[in-house]
């Protein structure tokens, strides 16, 4: 289980997250929606501690961390409980697809090279890149790079994988292949928090949808509740803007 309590973050005087509480059950896929600047990325980055919250508590699995007094060691511990899939992929540029996936296993998890390699190859095959093991990121398409990114996150067997708009930097024709991989691993019961603007994906993959605006969670519920029967005016406005087809299709 992942439990965020009272997560608060400001950049200077600009408060970006205002006392966020969020619970994600094991095996759940939570989709976070919200307009640009609402703090979605910042929230994910706080969970992975790439951004230091000013206040609040993060519980991942059996590890609890109070953001007010977190030592370096606590932070390293916490980071190992989650893995991030970045909007811009952020694959290690100087390493091949295989080495990208192996890196965390060898350096952080201290697996032997052979074991890390076997596991990494299996994962790359799973995301459909069994034939690209030795390719450098610069030799891969955006969709392929993102799939390596997903394999890299999976390899660490984290409690939760955090996806920050994993398909928004991709050409439209490449979005499908990445979403298909995310769907597949969602079915395997991997806990995920996904920030996305792909409404179709959110509808059929999410167990729980969260709508954020202005640094707070405005509304949350099942996809059916949130998409078909939003309660808050801000949610309705947002959904209307992002899915204009709803206006006439029903």
């Amino acid at each position: 289980m992942i439990q965020l309590t009272n997560i608060t973050k400001s950049f200077g005087r600009h408060q970006v997250l205002n006392k966020i509480d969020l619970t994600v059950q094991k095996g759940e896929v939570v989709v976070i929606l919200g307009p640009s600047g609402s703090g979605k990325t910042t929230l994910l980055r706080c969970v992975n501690y790439l951004e230091k919250p000013n206040d609040g508590e993060i519980l991942i699995g059996d590890y609890r961390l109070n953001c007010k007094h977190a030592s370096k060691k606590d932070i390293y511990q916490l980071r190992q409980k989650s893995a991030m899939v970045f909007q811009q992929y952020n694959l290690f540029k100087h390493k091949t697809a295989l080495e990208n996936v192996m890196e965390g296993l060898v350096v952080v998890k201290k697996l032997s090279k052979e074991e890390a390699k076997t596991r990494s190859i299996a994962l790359l095959e799973k995301v459909g890149l069994g034939s690209k093991l030795d390719a450098y990121p610069s030799q891969l398409s955006g969709g392929q790079q993102q799939r390596v990114g997903i394999a890299r996150a999976l390899a660490l067997e984290p409690e939760v994988i955090l996806f920050d708009e994993p398909t928004s930097a991709l050409d439209p024709e490449l979005v499908g292949e990445v979403l298909a991989v995310i769907r597949k691993i969602a079915k395997e019961g991997i806990t995920m928090i996904v920030v996305t603007h792909e409404m179709g994906f959110a509808r059929d993959v999410a167990n729980h949808v969260v709508f954020m605006d202005g640094g707070v969670i405005v509304e949350e519920g099942t996809p059916v509740e949130l998409f078909n029967n939003p309660q808050e005016e801000r949610t309705k406005q947002f959904l209307k803007r992002i899915t204009p087809e709803l206006n006439y299709s029903i």
Binding site: L50, K72, S82, A83, M84, N90, F92, V107, V108
Partner: peptide, 17 residues
């Protein structure tokens, strides 16, 4: 790129690593 460092942190590396 800053993203390289963040990816390294994300897989659990320490700053020296």
């Amino acid at each position: 790129n800053r993203g390289q460092l963040e990816a390294a942190y994300s897989v659990g590396m320490t700053t020296p690593q």
